[in-house]
Design a protein around this nucleic acid. Structure first.
Lengths: 258, 258
DNA sequence: ACGAGACTTCGTATGCCGTACGGAGAGAAT
DNA sequence: ATTCTCTCCGTACGGCATACGAAGTCTCGT
């Protein structure tokens, strides 16, 4: 299993200042050997390498930068704040990939929004291990939101509906990506492939599973397993869900147009 | 922040045996002072109380049962296996609430499926902190799947589509519930309400946020904030998303009917 | 020119965590 | 009665975030 980590705990003022690079440089004292962005970049690199946030420790970040562990606390308030700033750091990639608004119809635009997030999660799986209790108000998070909204601006939705549609797309992509990533992670962690796992588990399940008690599950599980070559196929879930969802949005826009 | 925990690491055979209560009772040695279900129930109670998996430690579970920490390992292989069995334990509630199949049309049925999961997550928020790398093959997980599928059986969808629709509903509910729960958690953890947080953060954001650079985000964020009395309204996201999603499924069924 | 004081760096220590190991003693099988 | 298997659990190890405070460095006011 993997567990999630909370954010939003530290002093909000300090975190926002850090996010926007507005922490005042002290006028006295020894020279800094590092900068906050350097610390954040080092942490992101480690997390990307491990594809995991649980193994990202302050000690390891400090080690990778060649400084003492406690020196990090000069640049960030806590591990929690570090993670929050790491998040905004990688959102910059999404902003760039979304590009400036215009040129597409809303459905293609939403597909692009979904795709950009999907790819971000695959590149930085640890992002999905972060629970942001409060909206992360970093510069790139806001820029990302702006470009996403621009895609569905002026097509007849109310402002509140626009926000809801973007949230809906994100909820879907996040959920599916989470399953995709966790499936990868378990294979890497255990060294057991899906096939090997199923080979080992199938006889035990057969001993215990009563197909008469679960007729529909038996039939559908079998069919889905055959079709996907696995218990779950995230790419299929991604595409299928996005299609349904866009049809639902189209229906909503239809009622507005009339 | 909160981080997620992995499952699926231990010996799958042992875990499945534990899930189905099929671990052979030893023929020799002293009497057991506990049973596996007792350990699991105690752990669930602690996790429910904390609303958090991170603070659930083997030491605390043992303490609450009045035994030594290491004694727990007689009943479960590891903390990881414990969490997996805890999951199946609470799925029993969902099975009961879903009830036997029949009586509803598919859309009401899917709404009920969503509602049951939603309520489960609110009652046991720690469930959303678990990443199940492999499908959890416990008895109640399977029974739950069976009753969910029954809701959309025989309405013209293929078996693979049925699986995809159930997955889609779950992805949505899970994602929205996760945000709802994390919002609760951050308030409890920090003792700062949404209003207090916004009061403290707003002046800082205004100093740094350039409405000219983010015109759509400024407009929509304002409107959504007004409408929801918060940065995010999970109940609204839940209902809005589910409506879109069911319309998308209806469209799919429509193409099948013709 | 120099001392005050602000600042960075980081060693040490505290209190958590999961769990490996092995000893003591219970109980069943022989 | 002996042997062997099993439970219970004390102890110990290596990990974690971070509080605290000492030591050294640099700026600024005088």
């Amino acid at each position: 299993m993997a567990e999630t980590e909370p954010t939003g705990g530290g002093d909000p003022a300090r975190t926002i200042a850090t996010l926007w690079g507005r922490r005042p440089m002290p006028r006295r004292g020894p020279k800094h050997t590092l900068t906050t962005p350097q610390v954040v970049a080092a942490a992101v690199e480690l997390a990307d390498g491990d594809q995991d946030l649980a193994t990202l420790s302050m000690r390891r970040v400090a080690e990778s930068l060649g400084v003492g562990t406690m020196s990090l606390y000069t640049y960030i308030a806590s591990r929690e704040e570090l993670v929050e700033v790491m998040l905004d750091h990688v959102y910059a990639e999404a902003v760039e990939r979304l590009g400036p608004a215009g040129g597409r119809d809303w459905a293609d635009g939403l597909r692009r929004v979904a795709e950009v997030s999907w790819e971000l999660y695959l590149r930085h799986p640890w992002v999905l291990q972060v629970f942001t209790g409060r909206p992360p108000l970093g510069p790139h998070a806001i820029a990302k939101y702006e470009r996403e909204l621009a895609v569905i601006d002026g097509i007849g939705l109310t402002d509140v509906e626009m926000d809801a549609v973007i949230t809906l797309v994100h909820t879907h992509v996040e959920g599916v990506a989470r399953r995709r990533i966790e499936a990868d992670r378990v294979v890497r962690r255990t060294g057991i492939s899906d096939e090997q796992w199923w080979e080992r588990v199938q006889p035990l399940v057969e001993e215990v599973f009563d197909a008469a008690r679960f007729p529909v599950a038996a039939r559908v599980g079998e069919a889905a397993g055959q079709a996907h070559q696995a218990a779950h196929n995230p790419e299929h879930a991604y595409a299928f869900g996005l299609d349904r969802l866009l049809e639902g949005v189209a229906a909503l826009i239809g009622t507005r147009a009339t």
